[in-house]
């Protein structure tokens, strides 16, 4: 593992530094308290910087952190002291772009909270146990947003109740639309 580019955490915080969604992949922060403390001091340190047009970067507690702010959302990606900064930046960029696509360009905290499931799935598609799965924003979003009934399953395999439930679901959705 030591040679492989790895990510220690992905953080999505709000304008007050509170958690929207976070995911840790390293044992550096064993308890929730240490995680919260990390988020708090990181937020305090980066809050005043202008990371809106270009991603910014800082050294923090022996870690390299790249970050970008949009509206009231703060995106962070943390990697080890020795990590290639540009790789971390590409992860950050994928994270940020995927969220932008998923939230249909209105990237803010409210929209993120309403679509929390998408955010969780998105984080899951970017990093798996610290290893980079995908860094292309559109691809990540594409993997997250395939929200349909599993049409690949043959009808014969479905029980009557399942088929009914599926039909009902279809029906209500089309009504709601």
């Amino acid at each position: 593992m030591e040679n492989c580019p790895s990510v220690k955490n992905l953080l999505l915080l709000d304008s007050e530094g509170k958690r929207v969604a976070v995911k840790y992949y390293s044992d550096d922060w064993p308890t929730n308290q240490s995680k919260l403390a990390f988020e708090k001091s990181l937020f305090a340190k980066t809050q005043k910087t202008n990371a809106r047009t270009e991603a910014e970067i800082t050294l923090f507690d022996e870690n390299v952190v790249v970050y970008k702010f949009v509206e009231d959302l703060h995106f962070f990606v943390t990697g080890g002291d020795d990590e290639n900064e540009l790789i971390l930046a590409s992860v950050l960029n994928g994270f940020f772009e995927a969220v932008t696509v998923l939230l249909r360009s209105s990237v803010d905290q409210r929209e993120a909270l309403t679509n929390m499931d998408l955010i969780f799935l998105c984080i899951d598609e970017i990093i798996d146990g610290g290893l980079i799965l995908e860094t292309d924003g559109t691809t990540i979003a594409g993997k997250v947003a395939s929200h349909t009934i599993d049409e690949g399953a043959p009808l014969s395999e479905q029980t009557i109740t399942q088929a009914l439930a599926a039909a009902r679901e279809h029906f209500t959705r089309s009504l709601l639309r």
């Binding site: 499931d117 969780f120 799935l121 929200h147 009934i149 599993d150 479905q158 399942q162 439930a165």
Partner: peptide, 10 residues
């Protein structure tokens, strides 16, 4: 049991 893709992801 459910065949809903979105639910399965969750």
């Amino acid at each position: 049991q459910s065949r809903d893709l979105g639910l399965r992801r969750m």
